[in-house]
């Protein structure tokens, strides 16, 4: 009897230890030229900017190489500083080789003209879809408003009220809330509503992620397009 109780106690103690659950949070790294310049005035300079998100969607500081498809039109140095030399069109490429040897790049096509034109994208949109058996669906738009963004969830939005502790995040990894920005607890489960996110840009995040904190699982997401 004593042995039985002892074995039971040991098994209980061992099995009640905190273990590890692993989630598949691998994503393709992304290098994103964040400038929205369409044309560059000849004989002027322009500093290109970028953001790099690694294989878990975390922003990481890297030094990409910059190149121009036609150095007779635009030249660009190692820091992304471009100089428009002559009228025409060239493709600017930012390229980074990650730790696994993968080449990650982004390109923008720039016209060298008589004036510099920057057309800031003002809105993006997407579709919210469940990734579980909890109801979650709808569409949304995201508008830029100075230094903020406004997420407008549309009338067709619907979420299960049986789901405890649902939170909304902005993330660059649809499978994880690591490195994501928490917007807040979901308090509207049907119909249109908005979230204002301060100090955020339209191109800072790629996904809306709905996450259930008590269960610690992702419930759904929406790609920002």
């Amino acid at each position: 009897m004593k042995n039985l109780l002892l074995y039971t106690a040991i098994i209980t103690l061992l099995s009640s230890c905190i273990g590890d659950d692993f989630i598949d949070d691998r994503v393709d790294p992304v290098l994103r030229i964040t400038d929205e310049i369409q044309s560059l005035e000849v004989n002027t300079m322009y500093q290109f900017n970028f953001a790099y998100f690694n294989n878990i969607g975390a922003e990481e500081s890297v030094n990409p190489s910059w190149s121009s498809s036609d150095s007779s039109i635009i030249i660009i140095d190692d820091n992304g500083l471009a100089t428009a030399i002559a009228l025409g069109e060239a493709i600017i490429t930012a390229e980074y080789v990650d730790e696994e040897g993968n080449i990650i790049e982004d390109i923008v096509s720039i016209i060298v003209d008589t004036s510099t034109v920057i057309e800031v994208e003002e809105s993006k949109s997407g579709v919210i879809a469940t990734t579980t058996f909890y109801d979650l669906s709808g569409t949304f738009t995201i508008d830029s408003n100075d230094d903020d963004i406004i997420i407008n969830v549309a009338d067709d939005y619907e979420a299960s009220t049986g789901l405890p502790g649902l939170y909304l995040y902005l993330s660059n990894n649809r499978n994880s809330i690591a490195n994501a920005r928490e917007i807040g607890k979901v308090e509207v489960f049907n119909g249109a509503h908005t979230y204002t996110v301060a100090d955020a840009g339209l191109n800072d995040y790629s996904f809306l992620v709905y996450f259930c904190k008590p269960f610690n699982v992702k419930v759904g997401d929406g790609e920002i397009q």
Binding site: D20, D21, I23, D24, D25, I56, A178, N216
Partner: peptide, 22 residues
């Protein structure tokens, strides 16, 4: 009575995303 939750770790980096607790 003891209640616990596991750590949630990245399958890519093995870093802890959500700290387990009890």
């Amino acid at each position: 009575s003891r209640s616990y939750m596991n750590n949630q770790r990245s399958g890519t980096t093995e870093e802890i995303i959500i700290q387990g607790e009890a």
